[in-house]
Amino acid sequence: MNPTETAAAQMVHKGPSHKRIRLITRVCWTSALLVVAVPFVFPFLWMVSSSLKSAAEIFGAPSLIPDRFLWSNFVEVFNYQPFARHYFNSIYISLSVTGLTLIIASLAGYALARMRFAGAGLIMLFLVSGLMVPEEVTIIPNFFLVRWLGLMDTHAPLILLPTFGSHGVMATFLMRQYFVALPKELEEAGTMDGLSRLGVWWKIALPMSRPALGAVAIITFLFSWNLFLEPLVFLSSLEKFTLPLSLANFTDAYGMPLWHLQLAATTLAVVPVLTIYVLAQRQIIESFALSGVKG
């Protein structure tokens, strides 16, 4: 099924002309993949191109290159609503969730992987129960809980819910899985060297778990960054909005989208993430692979 493999298989039978056949198969495969890639790439291109068009041109004849590059859209985005503030909100909330999750998940994951204590099995079972439950199930009571705690229209629920919800549990099991596979003797050497459990965790287990910590950090950051339902339910003041909420909010008085602004804002939100993604694609993709095979 793989281009080079198919070519190699044919090589055995066809002998001398194998070079040409290999070339043809490769060209066929590559063009097929290119065709499939169109709907994956085109939306991004069209988004960027339209973000540079005027409201009028957007609805004119389609062209990938704007008649006139209208950079002012990007300025207007910031005038229409406190977009910079929203950007900042998203960054600091996602960083908080990531930091908290790393500490909490690696602490719990370490204890569950390495320490013998009564109730460990029960706690595992308890946590596992939440792994596959959609957040829509608990959003209603959480709404009342947050209101009761007086945290409505604050960022606290946006930090607490992802950290302690099923994503946090997933991160815990990911860390546990990694710790279990680490050589135990290193930590025992640490104990012999006089470290407490906390010391072993911090000075030995964590430094050796950088790949897992990196993976958890990446998927947690993106998870929090893209969260939509929770901000929608808990936030009401405009200046508290996060990016996804902000993007959805570029509408006119009738609720119709202001496309040129919305697309400019979306471009501003997406392009930095995509840039980082392309630069660190290997690590990011591997992180998701790791989180998926945990089961």
Binding site: I104, A105, L107, A108, Y110, A111, L112, M115, R116, F117, G119, A120, I123, F126, L127, G130, L160, T163, F164, G165, G168, V169, T172, S196, R197, L198, W201
Partner: peptide, 13 residues
């Protein structure tokens, strides 16, 4: 110690 380690996620959860 172990309970202390697992308590944040457990209580939060």
């Amino acid at each position: 110690t172990a309970l202390l380690f697992v308590s944040p996620i457990t209580i939060g959860f």
